[in-house]
Amino acid sequence: MIPPFLALFCVGLCAGQGDIRRHESLPRPSISAWPSSVVPANSTVTLRCSAPTRDGNFALRKNGFPQGFVPSPDSPEGLAEFHLADLKNSNAGEYTCEYYRRESPHIRSPPSDALLLLVTGNFPKPLLQPHQRGKVTAGGKVTLQCQRPEHLTESIMFALLKKGTSTPIQIQNPVGKETDFSLQNVAVDDTGDYSCVYFQGKPPFWASEPSNHLAIWVTARDSLLEDTESSNRAETTLGTTEIILIIIFTLLFLLAAFLIYRYSNCGAALDKMTKSSHSSKKPEEVVTDVSPAVKSCSLALGCDKGAGQGCRGLA
């Protein structure tokens, strides 16, 4: 016995074909998969069909043909959830959903965009490897290469997956036995575990085992800028310190040179006074004509009344 909602859907389909304007006037629904549209065999996936209306019944199609899956009775208004359990290879394919009005006229909506459901495990896993190593700065580029085994000759496509997302990040045709996935202008949110699969691009859509996960780490550009500015500040501080030290050493050198010069002049003056004193005819005569420079030397050398003979003539 055909379920009532399928019978009503057939009525709506016929009515819709007779009135294209009303058919196109309904908003297009959207379809998504949870937890992912790429899942292993024997697992469970939920296909969700959403539309901006409460007056509608939903139907599911695979590869253009109606399916007998009944929406969950717990689905909220405007949303139909189709639970597909114990998945088999035959469940793989392109799914769309549509809805039709419960009340007259029973016209149906345009179909949603197609969602490709892949059931993995039919081929050996590929190899995923990066073109560059190490951390990536935000705003940069990441290139990942997915490579299938040598012996396969089927017409295939590649899909790049990220853990935690419900659909492939990218889908591409191969170049030989491999393909490159390019992630442009990456952000911190692109950090995560990536894998890839290859699959048939037409029914029955057989897919390989996923590759091993590859961790990608994206660092913030602001952090790098902050580190650079800190380094520049350190270099500036270091340059200032060096200049100060050079000035201090220069002053010390000049002071030392000045002291050496003063002491050298004082020594010559003292020696001259001593010779003059020894050459006097009368020992009791004392030299009283002492130049200012010699007096300065006496002060510099610490001469006083109790100093030695060299200082007596300066006291």
Rank of each mutant, 00 (worst) to 15 (best):
R148A: 07
C146Y: 04
G201F: 11
T274K: 06
S280I: 08
R21Q: 03
T237N: 13
L183C: 09
T167E: 06
E98N: 08
L128P: 12
K62S: 09
R312N: 09
F205M: 11
F158D: 06
P126N: 03
T137F: 07
K272Q: 13
T240F: 04
G12V: 07
S30I: 11
G12I: 04
A307N: 14
P283H: 04
T250L: 10
K177E: 02
A256R: 10
I243T: 10
S90A: 13
K275D: 05
M157E: 14
N63T: 14
L299N: 11
E103A: 10
L314Y: 15
G139E: 10
H213L: 11
H131T: 08
G12Q: 10
L116C: 04
D19E: 05
Q17C: 09
A207R: 07
V136H: 14
V11F: 14
L60V: 12
P126V: 02
V286M: 07
M1I: 10
D289Q: 15
N89V: 00
L128K: 12
S36E: 07
L8H: 15
F205N: 08
G267S: 13
C266L: 02
P210G: 06
R61M: 13
V218R: 10
V186A: 02
D189Y: 05
P40W: 05
L183Q: 12
Y95W: 03
P52K: 03
R233S: 06
Q129A: 15
V136K: 14
C266N: 08
Q147L: 12
G121Y: 02
P168E: 01
I246W: 05
L60S: 11
L238I: 05
I169C: 08
L238C: 12
K141D: 10
